[in-house]
Design a protein around this nucleic acid. Structure first.
Lengths: 150, 150
DNA sequence: TCATTATGCTTTAAGTTTAAAATATATGGA
DNA sequence: TCCATATATTTTAAACTTAAAGCATAATGA
């Protein structure tokens, strides 16, 4: 959304940057969602599958923190993945409050199959930028994201 | 989420970039949501208010396209804004299918009051990057976002 | 002119998302 | 040891989000 009003040079630059960040994210995300839908998954479900597939079993709390979403939300996502037989819940022996979630064999098989294809699609989408541009964008985004994470 | 698996040099770079984009967005967004909540609004509500405040009355379809969300969703957002007396719906004379949504006086007053403060907050958040970095980030994000919008 | 196709908004159903509340468990200090 | 505080997960309520369906209106072509 293009602002026509002036709020100061610094503010206008910052607002413009934020708008472009939000739009680039929304647009890129829409394409990834389209790809993921081919596998019968929603994006949050795919994200959880990916997290578990790469990093292994973990508590729901850890999963929600890695994915930057709330615990209540992750409960819902895991509920649906469990319904599809892609993950299983186990209670932790170390801490009886905690629930460990892991990929089932079915879930791991699906992950192994679809992640490379999805990675290929992400590569295609990112190809509008050169390698150097991708690297620079990564550097700046990392700087922005990490500074605000504190 | 850090991938430990190798999918090829190009794919790894693209995946890394996408992860950083998603995380930077999520983190920056969380901060903007926190600011907006001070005014008793949700983020989508604030976005609609901002759009109407800057660009004036428009159809619900136009609004949803500018905000890159679905029409069904915008109906819901506008419903709640209408409930708060911040916007009003009017039927279009040119096209009787269309609904025009505009800020009420109450809505405009609120917008005029809170947007400058919010802009200030965005400026603060963006200040972890230099002016040059902000400009470069904007350029790359614009390039990425526009290429995918086609 | 009329029928077919397209389009605008709303509703529906399912999933996501949050903060806060609820319940059980763990931790730390007196 | 005991109690206050903290924490893990789930539930609840409200809002968001999508695609598809529904309904009304507009556009187009025979």
């Amino acid at each position: 959304m293009k602002t026509t009003k002036q709020y100061g040079k610094h503010a206008d630059a910052a607002l413009g940057m934020w708008v472009k960040l939000a739009r680039a994210y929304a647009t890129f995300n829409r394409e990834t969602v389209k790809d993921i839908r081919r596998y019968g998954l929603t994006q949050p479900q795919f994200g959880a599958l990916e997290c578990l597939g790469h990093l292994g079993a973990m508590t729901i709390g850890d999963l929600s923190r890695k994915m930057l979403v709330s615990g209540g939300n992750m409960t819902c996502v895991v509920d649906n993945l469990e319904k599809e037989g892609l993950v299983r819940r186990e209670h932790s022996h170390e801490d009886r409050r905690a629930v460990i979630v892991a990929l089932t064999e079915k879930g791991d098989t699906l992950f192994q199959e679809i992640f490379p294809e999805h990675a290929e699609r992400i590569t295609q989408l990112a190809a509008v930028l050169s390698e150097a541009e991708q690297a620079e964008l990564s550097r700046l985004l990392k700087k922005l994201g990490q500074a605000l994470a504190d």
